[in-house]
């Protein structure tokens, strides 16, 4: 059955010195978080968790790996 997403929020943080945007919403009992690189906004990771904090922490950890793997300065 379709469900309505709730508690949509987005905020900017810094991950390994790079601007990053977290977007989180809840669908049923799970929270879904994505992280993008703000400019241009490419999504780096998507994760889910049973709480907002868990989903966002995991997302930040995985995004850190993506930034370190691909970004050259």
């Amino acid at each position: 059955m379709p469900e309505r997403p709730e508690d949509y929020q987005e905020r900017q943080v810094s991950i390994e010195g790079h601007p990053a945007r977290l977007r989180t919403f809840r669908l049923g009992s799970l929270f879904y978080t994505s992280v993008d690189n703000v400019d241009p906004g490419g999504v780096l990771v998507r994760v889910e968790g049973s709480t907002r904090e868990e989903a966002e922490q995991r997302a930040i950890q995985e995004a850190r790996r993506e930034f370190l793997a691909y970004t050259h300065r």
Partner: peptide, 9 residues
């Protein structure tokens, strides 16, 4: 930059 942060060059 050659690619956006987190994207492959």
């Amino acid at each position: 930059v050659l690619a956006p942060a987190g994207a492959p060059e």
